[in-house]
Design a protein around this nucleic acid. Structure first.
Lengths: 129, 129
DNA sequence: AATCAATTTGCGATTAATTCGCAAATTACC
DNA sequence: GGTAATTTGCGAATTAATCGCAAATTGATT
C-alpha cells in the first residue's frame, strides 16, 4: 500500500510546476530544503515515481548524475518526446506532428510505432546556438 | 592530439560489431578481457567516443549503471531505426522517410533530430499478427 | 482522540560505479 | 634509435545512490 506523506506531496508538486526540465536528485533536495525532505526520501520517492511511469530518468553527456523529469502530465499522453542530448531537457512534439509520423511509419514500413515509449534524440534550439 | 592505441581500436571494433545493443562499461571490459584492456582505459575511451558523438549514453530503469551504444557505424548512417518491443529486432527506416521526419521536426519544433542516435519503438509487422 | 499496525522518514554507514594520480609503457615524429 | 607527448594499468579516491534501523508519521479502527 502507499501512505500519503508530506514529503511525497512536496516532491510531486515540485515536478508539476517544473514539468519541462530535468533535475538531479541533489538539485531537487536543494530546492526543497525549506520543505524538510531528506535526500534519502528524495531518492526513494523518485524511484517509485519512475516505476509508476510518472517521471523519466536520463543522463546528460559528460556527467554521471541521473536526471529526472516529470512526464505524466495530461499533456504528455499520445505523442513523441524530444530529448536534448546536450542539456537533457525533454520537450513535447505536438500531437498532430506525432500522429503524422506514426501514420507514415505505419504506412511505409508496416511498423506500429508506440509514441509513448519512444524518445527522439537531438539538440534543442537553445543548445544549438 | 590523439594516439592510435591497440586498446582504442579494440574498443571501436567491438562497437562496430555490436551496433544495435547497449553495454555497460563493465560488460565491455568483461567481453574484451582477452584483448587486454583495463577498465580504466574502457572508461577513458568511452568518454572520448561520447564526446566525439560516436556513441551515446543512456540508462535503463531500475539500474544505476550507464549504458553505451554505438551510433556512428556506416550502415546506420542517415536514418532512423525501428526496434520491435515484442521480438527485439531492429530494422532500418528508409533514408527518404527518415529525412522527411528529421526535416519536419526541425521545421515544426526547431529541434535538430539526430537520426543516427534515435530509435523508434513499436511493434513490427510480423509481431502484430 | 487513543490505540495500533503498516509505512515512511532521517541519519549515518555502506556500496558500487566512475574518476584520479602517477609511474611505466606505448606512440608518433625527427 | 632518441625524445616528447600521450595513453595505459594499477590502486586509491571520490561520489552518486542504496541500505539498515530506530524514531516518526499515517490511516484505519474503536
Amino acid at each position: 500500500m502507499q501512505y500519503n506523506t508530506k514529503q511525497r506531496e512536496v516532491l510531486m508538486s515540485f515536478f508539476e510546476s517544473h514539468h519541462d526540465q530535468a533535475f538531479s536528485a541533489e538539485e531537487i533536495a536543494e530546492q526543497l530544503k525549506s520543505e524538510k525532505i531528506s535526500i534519502s526520501a528524495v531518492y526513494r520517492n523518485l524511484a517509485e515515481l519512475e516505476k509508476d511511469g510518472k517521471i523519466r530518468k536520463n543522463i546528460k553527456s559528460g556527467n554521471r548524475k541521473i536526471f529526472y523529469q516529470f512526464v505524466d502530465c495530461d499533456e504528455c499522453k499520445g505523442h513523441l518526446h524530444l530529448t536534448c542530448t546536450k542539456c537533457g531537457k525533454t520537450e513535447h512534439l505536438p500531437d498532430a506532428d506525432s500522429n503524422k509520423i506514426v501514420k507514415s511509419v505505419l504506412q511505409n514500413s508496416n511498423f506500429n510505432l508506440d509514441s509513448d515509449s519512444t524518445i527522439l534524440y537531438g539538440v534543442c534550439e537553445k543548445c544549438r546556438k
